[in-house]
Design a protein around this nucleic acid. Sequence first.
DNA 1: CTGAAAGCGCTTACAG
DNA 2: CTGAAAGCGCTTACAG
Lengths: 332, 332
Amino acid sequence: MPDSKKVTLSDVAKVAGVSLSTASKALNGSARISEATRARIEEVARRLDFQPNALAQSFARGRSQTIGILTQNAIGTWSAPILVGAASYLGRHEHATLFYDAAFDAEVLEASIRRLRARRIDGLLVIGDGPHYNLRSVTHSFSVPVTYVFTSTDGPDDATFVPDGVMAGRLAAQHLLEIGRRRVAHLTAADDIAATERLQGLTEGLAAAGLAPVAVHAQRDWSEETGAATATALLRSGVEFDAIFCGNDHVARGAEKVLLAAGLRVPDDVALVGVDNWEGTIVGQGTRHLTTIDPLLSRLGTAAAKDVLSADHVGGRQPQPCVLVIGETTVG
Amino acid sequence: MPDSKKVTLSDVAKVAGVSLSTASKALNGSARISEATRARIEEVARRLDFQPNALAQSFARGRSQTIGILTQNAIGTWSAPILVGAASYLGRHEHATLFYDAAFDAEVLEASIRRLRARRIDGLLVIGDGPHYNLRSVTHSFSVPVTYVFTSTDGPDDATFVPDGVMAGRLAAQHLLEIGRRRVAHLTAADDIAATERLQGLTEGLAAAGLAPVAVHAQRDWSEETGAATATALLRSGVEFDAIFCGNDHVARGAEKVLLAAGLRVPDDVALVGVDNWEGTIVGQGTRHLTTIDPLLSRLGTAAAKDVLSADHVGGRQPQPCVLVIGETTVG
DNA sequence: CTGAAAGCGCTTACAG
DNA sequence: CTGAAAGCGCTTACAG
């Protein structure tokens, strides 16, 4: 049965013996229509396998039932789970998603914005590449709601959905305290919004037990190299520690290598917690090695999609919960 | 400037002092229009910042300029690069993408198909979860071209774009021969289309040098456990080997652990080649460890997108090239 | 080369 | 509760 043999609403109306407008109202729920009429029209529609032409509906209504999704870097590993979380929520709520990838390119971005506007989207989701730096706000280019995910923007009122970095730090602290650690060091990236939040959470979490981080080492980025370098610095400093909260999983991996090479045991001598749950994204993994904080990116996408669709689309930063994922580096 | 202040084509026509139809023709390239008129209309359109209402255009033309993308498992790591490759090609060619994820669920799939049809897509890309098993063909549900990517289907005439498994095997063989290996073993999954192809390529590649695989061990799946188990079996068998071509990267990882535990050196004693380029998907990695065959998934998505858009949309299986990526496990 | 007119398939005030 | 009619903003034969 290739395509809806072009059964049109007037076909339905004709067969059901009613006017076009009555048929339309009956099928769209609202409006006062006698139950009998409605039932008859619905029966006919079903029998003829009537599929309303969504193009015509959108055009007539002036709403496209489509949400634009604009990624900065779709190929990056972050975007996929967010995209999927958002798209599946939107799909369940009768909205299609119109997907463009700007690939960090200003011209492509400009072209994408033009096309999204031409397509009369009902809202836009902008997926960033991490809450680390400020994206240029594009809200002013649209008259429909714009919601940002996994990024910060230079528009202070923009609705931005990001993982709660403070919560991440607090969860790490609580877990380390629970397994009896008291001397927690922190290795992370410098000059980074997310890093700052995570440290704040760690500090708050430890403070609840009357403690503070025994050391904080920060370098430029979030790489394995940074992890190795800061771990080396930590060892050399002579500070005593029985746990490290690492700014992310890469840092944790670098730190672990250095610790093991120095003859320390993980977790017996030093417990290790990361952030991101990299392992979770890799299929076919057996045991879970690294204890980490999962930013629940798919859920983040869902939350943002819900926001962009909602009548009272919110503004401002909207931190979303993370969860602790326990692995061998804290509970051998 | 929120949204295109509803400047309409008739506004442009009025200002330019021409009829609606002339304005339309001038802006759409075709039709014989005097250069002077066309220039004037274009100038007015630009000046008024006219953005054609894509909804109205689609409706009038009966074509949506939209390609549906249906994933079986969007959250799986395979889909993302394919999706991005396809979407960015389509974006560059003035087509939007309408994204639905079936999440391996038959009911969701059914609903997605209904919606895609209602939206009058101009073509459909179905992204699978690997060429390992046959997807149920949905081609008959559409009157527009349907192209499959990274999957097999039960429709023999379906256009399916898959990585060339034979080429993958051949590339591995050639590389191993080039670095002087003569005794190549193969560890892989059983009862799998892709596995069979890769073995065939390996066999062909070795045959060119008058050789054959010294051993082939296959187990149920593609996991790290399978790699470890088959590598153990290989070691116990007493067969001499100086290289292993592994069915995929997970298998290679499992095999490497077993080899190292047995006191063998990689690559000095045994060179190791995988398939998939898992490492390539993980950002922030430093050195490349595993030599592998990259299936170029993003390119695969692009090729499929090109096909679905092309007038002479092809049928049948369309194997696409892979490339060798050299790492420490063959060239220490 | 240019324009008047019909039509794409719906929705939605407005009357009745 | 039901229907006649206008309209959404374009495209596209068809005349001229």
